[in-house]
């Protein structure tokens, strides 16, 4: 699949196909207008999140005098409340620790597994690869109850370890599958040369395969980080005390108090919690797209 798309893509980018046949007004109606509506709908919630963050309560709750789409008197009160009067900084720290540790564990074990499956070709390698792919199809929603009993049993309840050890269950299948695709695209001849020159297999992995698979490693790493940052159900089920929560769980369970919703600080929490992944995403867009589509195409 990878070879095929590489072979076909240049032909696509060189030629515009039959696009020159369409007139400008025709294109405005059939392409630009629908696309503008799509973008408006897809991006509006973020705009809404952002402007709510900087509004005071009286502005939010008075739609007669203040248009809801504008900010009249910008205020940092919501962010100040979030950072200094809630456990939000601790949640950010926890989420960072959990996401980084589980990403490192997952990428390291996936590299070894993908290398063994694609290059060492032990008996049953094909079947193992397929089983790992099937593991990706097991959703967390049917695992969290038995995992909760295990977490109680192992005395990990309410600790970061409960999350660091369980997140790899959905990260490893994804990363292994992705890296298998990358390893397969590296010419086997390079490794044969190194074998003839007397390199051990681990040296080959470390000095030849891994340097060539760096884009794959980056893809796997940032995607794992994002998935762990977004994870919700395990963090909700395995963590109970406020100071150990992650950002998504903390915002939803600690900032919603009674019947009065403090929309300003809630949206500030959502905005700040989204920023790290949004920043990471903006730097590595191409890697995200290739890992998303690569995993699907394989």
């Amino acid at each position: 699949m990878t070879d095929k798309s590489v072979a076909v893509q240049p032909a696509v980018s060189d030629s515009t196909g039959m696009a020159y046949l369409a007139t400008v007004p025709h294109r405005v109606v059939t392409v630009y207008l629908p696309l503008a509506i799509f973008l408006l709908v897809l991006l509006f919630p973020f705009y809404w999140m952002a402007i709510t963050t900087f509004k005071s309560n009286e502005e939010l709750l008075n739609q007669r005098e203040f248009s809801p789409f504008l900010v009249y008197h910008a205020t940092l009160a919501n962010i100040e409340k979030l950072l200094f009067r809630t456990s939000y900084p601790e949640w950010l720290f926890n989420t960072m620790v959990v996401a980084v540790s589980s990403t490192c564990i997952s990428v390291a074990s996936s590299v070894l597994a993908a290398y063994a499956i694609t290059r060492l070709r032990f008996r049953g390698a094909q079947v193992t690869g397929l089983l790992i792919f099937l593991a990706y199809l097991v959703p967390p929603s049917i695992l969290f109850i038995p995992l909760a009993t295990m977490v109680y049993g192992l005395d990990l309840y309410d600790t970061n370890w409960a999350l660091i050890l369980t997140y790899p269950t959905f990260l490893i299948p994804f990363c292994t599958w992705l890296l298998m695709g990358y390893f397969k695209s590296i010419p086997y001849e390079l490794e044969e040369c190194a074998l003839i020159d007397g390199a051990t297999r681990l040296q080959i992995l470390w000095k030849i395969t891994l340097p060539l698979a760096v884009p794959g490693l980056i893809s796997a790493g940032i995607f794992s980080f994002t998935l762990s940052w977004n994870e919700f159900i395990y963090a909700l089920a395995f963590i109970s005390s406020s100071e150990n929560k992650t950002v998504p769980v903390g915002v939803l369970t600690q900032l919603v108090e009674g019947d009065v919703y403090h929309w300003g600080s809630l949206m500030a929490g959502a905005l700040l919690g989204s920023l790290p992944v949004a920043l990471l995403y903006s730097f590595f867009v191409e890697y995200y797209v290739s890992s998303l589509t690569g995993a699907v195409k394989e």
């Binding site: 919630p45 973020f46 809404w48 999140m49 994002t226 940052w229 977004n230 919700f232 950002v247 998504p248 769980v249 915002v251 939803l252 809630l266 949206m267 929490g269 959502a270 905005l271 919690g273 989204s274 992944v277 949004a278 995403y281 995200y288």
Partner: peptide, 11 residues
């Protein structure tokens, strides 16, 4: 890309 729970809060 954005955490589902956080965009769900906006909704």
């Amino acid at each position: 890309i954005i955490p589902t729970v956080l965009s769900a809060l906006a909704f």
